[in-house]
Computed example of a mutant assay.
Amino acid sequence: MDPNAHKKARLVNRLSREELLKKLESETFRRITLSFYRYVIIDNPDQMRDRLFEMWSRLNCLGRIYVAHEGINAQMNVPEHYFDQFKQELYAIPEFENIPFKIAVEHDNKSFIKLTVKVRKKIVADGLNDDEYDVTNVGRHLTAREWNEMMKLPNVKIVDMRNFYESEVGHFEGALLPQAETFREELPEVLNMLRGCEDDPILLYCTGGIRCEKASAYLRHHGFKNVNQLHGGIIDYYRQVKEEGLENRFRGKNFVFDNRLGEHISSEVIATCHQCGKPCDTHRNCANKACNILFLQCDDCAREYEGTCSPACQEVIHLPLEEQKKLLRQVKQRKTFMRYRRWKPECS
């Protein structure tokens, strides 16, 4: 028997979703939602994973964290009264000393409902071989002020390095918007979009900056000479805009990968409901769990379709519970979930 089996069993969440939500609803304190990443060599990712899980469980932190040999990528929330201790203990780990945080624009105590720390091959799935980029040879990092100034340059190419369902609800003015569903698909698409522009100024941006680190290294590897990236991503851009009184060049909402699914950067609503076409930037997952597709749905359609994406899915949620579970098991066995692509807009 593994002598560490008992210890390993403790290093995972054992509560149900209902129990986790009930626990959150009873909290009387504020949680700070934040994200951070760093490319740094971690010799033993499994050991680091357990260390972080134990540390953050003790501080009642919640979130989704990936640890790999190449570094860490974290989105989480921290009880406000533990924030200083959280920061102190994280910075005490040499690999994460003074790691910069991106604090969320809009806080929600339910941004995450449990703590998950996983070991991955890479902290961002990119589908690249190690010889296709050098993450130490990245683009120039721009402040919000520098970014706004470079947006005015002739022949500038502004590229959204996020998935299309993210840019659909919000993006920078004049940005190229790849229509990929994943970062892995997006890199070659962006390379093709920029062919012939190797000497032009390239401006890359994403949510918090992590995808731009690899994207800028990838483009430099392929001969692009003037590659720049928004330091801290959209999240830190908005912080700087507010603090320095700068012009906000971002239109709409910033999609985030937690239960909030978005935070407003400007008051504009630039997207439309996928069912009725009215202005809408609210993402929902289809209430039919065998579908669970991510889509845009206004409140009126949410009432009419009962939170589902189609009349067919609406019928499913009225089936007996055992029938619904049977459908869900079939979907999981086939591993062929219905995709968001059904509403994918035509390239402009």
Rank of each mutant, 00 (worst) to 15 (best):
D2V: 12
D2M: 09
D2Q: 13
P3V: 10
N4I: 09
H6R: 11
K8I: 12
R14E: 14
L20K: 15
L21N: 14
L24K: 14
L24W: 10
L24I: 15
E25Y: 11
E25D: 14
I32L: 09
T33Y: 01
L34F: 03
L34E: 06
F36R: 00
R38L: 05
D46H: 08
Q47E: 13
R49Q: 11
D50V: 05
R51V: 05
M55P: 02
M55G: 04
S57P: 00
R58D: 14
L62P: 00
I65R: 07
Y66S: 05
Y66I: 08
N73K: 04
Q75H: 12
V78G: 05
E80K: 10
Y82V: 02
F86W: 14
K87M: 11
Q88Y: 04
E95P: 03
P100Q: 09
H107I: 03
D108S: 15
N109R: 11
L115R: 02
L115Q: 06
T116R: 14
T116E: 14
K118C: 04
I123A: 01
A125C: 04
G127A: 06
N129L: 05
N129Y: 06
D130M: 06
D130Q: 11
V135C: 08
T136D: 07
L142V: 06
T143K: 10
T143V: 04
T143C: 04
E149Q: 13
M151N: 03
K152E: 14
P154K: 12
N155Q: 14
V159N: 02
D160I: 08
E166I: 05
S167K: 03
V169C: 06
V169F: 07
G170M: 12
G170R: 09
G170I: 12
G170W: 06
G174T: 06
E185I: 03
E186C: 15
E189D: 08
L191Y: 11
L191D: 07
N192M: 03
M193C: 03
L194N: 02
G196P: 09
P201Y: 05
I202R: 00
L204Q: 02
T207N: 08
G208Q: 03
C212K: 04
E213S: 08
K214H: 06
A215I: 01
F224I: 00
F224G: 00
N226W: 00
N226L: 03
V227M: 00
V227T: 01
N228F: 01
G232C: 02
I234W: 04
Y237H: 08
V241Q: 01
K242F: 02
R249S: 15
R249P: 01
R251W: 10
D258P: 10
E263V: 09
A271P: 06
H274D: 13
C276P: 13
P279L: 09
C280S: 13
C280A: 07
T282M: 08
H283W: 15
R284M: 07
C291M: 10
F295A: 11
L296H: 09
D299R: 13
D300N: 14
C301I: 08
R303M: 14
T308A: 10
S310V: 10
E315C: 03
L319S: 06
E322I: 09
Q324M: 11
K326Q: 15
L327W: 02
Q330L: 05
Q330N: 02
W343R: 14
W343T: 11
K344S: 07
K344W: 07
P345T: 09
E346S: 13
C347F: 08
S348F: 03
